[in-house]
């Protein structure tokens, strides 16, 4: 366990080197929130609510989704893993008693601590502008179920990124796959619009996809868009997806290693 603790600490240090990149990303986040504010402000103009929710509730949803991305979203883990494979750096892990998934998960956790810190800073800077438009529910169960949902979301996000990164065992260039998947994840993950605005049948179908649990699900629990029954059922589906994706990551890793040729001294 200690070795992964060290990996976490080294991950913290190396991510702090790129603190300006995180700071710049936080600034983009602020502008992205301005776009959301203007667009959804225009959508809600003259209406008490849409899909059963007010403008404040919808804006709160987006703010929570964005903050969650800083704390539990996978940013460029897929790229880092693919670089490890492409450059042969993966070889050093094959020669040591280190589980590559656990190592990468430790580094991912460290990166999210740093990006989460900058996310909170960005939120603090944005709050004076948006405070009057935020509307968070106060039921205690939302936090009790929201936190495990967030943890499972982190596992799902990381596992998907890990699987895409491992494609570098077979493909020289994986960025196309990654950005392709990003489009699907953003759409079906609820980052473009709250998924409950979809037609009922489409929403019910989306519930059984892993993307649903990448952003929408924890945000919907925390912001009051879904009730306790939905949250409990969702947690079960989310846990199943987390398990499936971790197993899939392990399977791809094993197959990839069979395909891998370690060259050089």
């Amino acid at each position: 366990m200690t070795k992964y603790g060290h990996a976490f600490v080294i991950g913290l240090q190396s991510n702090l080197i790129y603190r300006w990149n995180f700071a710049v990303r936080s600034l983009f986040w602020f502008f992205h929130l301005v776009v959301v504010f203007i667009l959804w402000g225009a959508v809600f103009a003259g209406k008490a609510g849409i899909g059963g929710f007010t403008f404040a509730q919808t804006l709160t949803y987006f703010v929570v989704v964005f903050i969650l991305q800083f704390f539990i979203g996978a940013f460029n883990e897929d790229y880092q893993i693919s670089e490890d494979i492409r450059n042969g750096l993966i070889n050093q892990f094959l020669l040591k008693p280190i589980n590559y998934f656990a190592y990468r998960l430790s580094v991912f956790a460290a990166a999210r601590v740093v990006s989460g810190f900058f996310g909170v800073l960005a939120l603090a800077a944005a709050l004076p502008f948006f405070r009057g438009y935020l509307d968070l529910p106060h039921e205690g169960w939302r936090l009790a179920l929201g936190l495990p949902a967030m943890a499972l979301t982190a596992v799902i996000q990381f596992s998907i990124a890990y699987c895409f990164g491992l494609l570098a065992f077979w493909f020289l260039e994986i960025q196309g796959f990654v950005i392709l998947s990003m489009a699907v994840e953003n759409l079906l993950g609820g980052q473009i619009f709250p998924l409950d605005l979809l037609p009922h049948a489409a929403f019910n179908a989306a519930r059984f996809l892993p993307f649903f649990y990448q952003a929408y699900f924890p945000a919907a629990i925390l912001t009051g868009r879904q009730g306790i029954d939905f949250a409990v059922q969702g947690l079960a589906i989310q846990a199943a997806w987390a398990f499936i994706l971790v197993c899939l990551a392990e399977a791809i890793w094993r197959r990839g290693l069979r395909h891998h040729t370690a060259a050089g001294g």
């Binding site: 209406k47 849409i50 196309g176 796959f177 950005i179 392709l180 489009a183 473009i192």
Partner: peptide, 27 residues
């Protein structure tokens, strides 16, 4: 793959417009 990537991102925008306008006539 890259052609598909760009096509998907265009589709994301179109779906977003479709969803928004399923709840309102004008923005």
């Amino acid at each position: 793959i890259w052609a598909l990537v760009e096509f998907f991102w265009i589709s994301v925008n179109v779906v977003m417009i479709g969803v928004i306008y399923s709840h309102t006539a004008l923005v």
